[in-house]
């Protein structure tokens, strides 16, 4: 079983390495944005799927990361430093925002983050001297490492892939550590978790802050990828989009956010032939999915799998024989 898993994992990484070779710029760009939205959705999955809190500000945290990175790299500071500052700022903001909100009932974090995202949008749009207002910022340089520049799209893809794999490894480590297990305990049975000595509030707050920091990393990658940022890319709608990725993929599953990000980013391309109707079809599909499988696509897959998997059946003839 362990060998099989390792084999599948190396196959998946191999596929990710091979995927962009020989593809056009547009496909490479789509793959890059899938990677960065996967990171962001993975962060939200920690908040939502493991700690059970709804955050509606993940795009806002991406915005913080993107603007900090853009401003710092435009000032000539290396990307690594800028990304570090972005991630730690998002972590700190997450702590500040979550601390009062988690003091009270569970759904208040959703309200506070909703207000925060909208406020952040207003600040980004109105403080023109720093953020460029609704015209945004342009021309962020792409980073170079040890003299190797990531200016070409293919090189930037491998840079994104490296960031993505690091983020996946960190998340995997967090979830396996005693911390991560306590997040899961919280979600499954908060009362029992508290009775075993877990500090519910502190754990949830940490999960939210770490999840936000992942958003910061995704933002730090978005600035050099698109090389143009404006407040509209970090509005509340986009937070809802990231929330959708997590839930459509399957919240609480490790690979859920990546699947969800792929669906949310690729589906518009697939449905392009329907022209104006694509958002209608798309939202209708989401409603249907939620009605029939609230655990998202992975949950639906599991349901179908357990239905068809051969079950261990009792041998009735033996029973008979036993009676004879």
């Amino acid at each position: 079983m362990k060998h099989l898993k390792l084999l599948l994992l190396s196959l998946a990484i191999g596929a990710l390495v091979v995927a962009p070779i020989g593809q056009g710029n547009y496909i490479i760009y789509t793959l890059c944005s899938w990677l960065l939205f996967s990171i962001s959705a993975m962060g939200l999955n920690l908040t939502l799927g493991y700690a059970g809190q709804v955050s509606l500000a993940q795009a806002g945290f991406m915005g913080i990361g993107a603007y900090i990175t853009a401003l710092m790299t435009l000032a000539g500071i290396h990307w690594i430093v800028a990304a570090g500052v972005s991630i730690s700022t998002c972590f700190a903001v997450g702590l500040l925002l979550g601390y009062p909100a988690l003091r009270v009932q569970h759904h208040f974090l959703a309200f506070v983050t909703l207000a925060f995202n909208t406020l952040l949008f207003l600040v980004l749009r109105n403080e023109e001297e720093i953020t460029g207002g609704s015209f945004g910022l342009v021309g962020m340089p792409r980073p170079s490492f040890f003299g190797i520049s990531t200016n070409s799209n293919l090189a930037f893809y491998y840079f994104s892939l490296a960031c993505f794999l690091t983020a996946v490894a960190v998340m995997w480590w967090i979830l396996r550590s005693p911390w991560g297990r306590s997040f899961k305990a919280l979600r499954e049975n908060p009362i029992r978790a508290e009775s075993l000595g877990l500090k519910i509030r502190r754990q949830t707050l940490l999960a939210f802050a770490i999840g936000s920091a992942f958003g910061g990393l995704a933002g730090a990658m978005q600035a050099p990828l698109v090389q143009f940022i404006e407040p509209g890319s970090f509005a509340l709608v986009h937070s809802l989009k990231i929330l959708l990725m997590v839930v459509v993929g399957g919240s609480g599953y490790f690979y859920g956010p990546m699947l969800g990000a792929a669906v949310v980013i690729l589906l518009p391309e697939v449905l392009r032939f329907t022209e104006g109707y694509y958002l209608i079809i798309y939202s209708a599909l989401v409603i249907v999915l939620m009605v029939f499988s609230p655990n998202g696509l992975i949950g639906a897959g599991q349901k179908i799998w357990t239905k068809f998997r051969p079950k261990h059946e009792e041998r009735r003839d033996m029973q008979k024989g036993f009676q004879l």
């Binding site: 939502l48 709804v54 759904h107 959703a110 809802l240 929330l243 959708l244 839930v247 919240s251 958002l279 209608i280 798309y282 939202s283 209708a284 989401v286 409603i287 939620m290 009605v291 609230p294």
Partner: peptide, 15 residues
């Protein structure tokens, strides 16, 4: 529970 319903109403608004 609440969460799937929240997502569904978001989608309904969009629809």
């Amino acid at each position: 529970g609440t969460l799937p319903l929240v997502i569904a109403t978001i989608a309904l608004g969009l629809l």
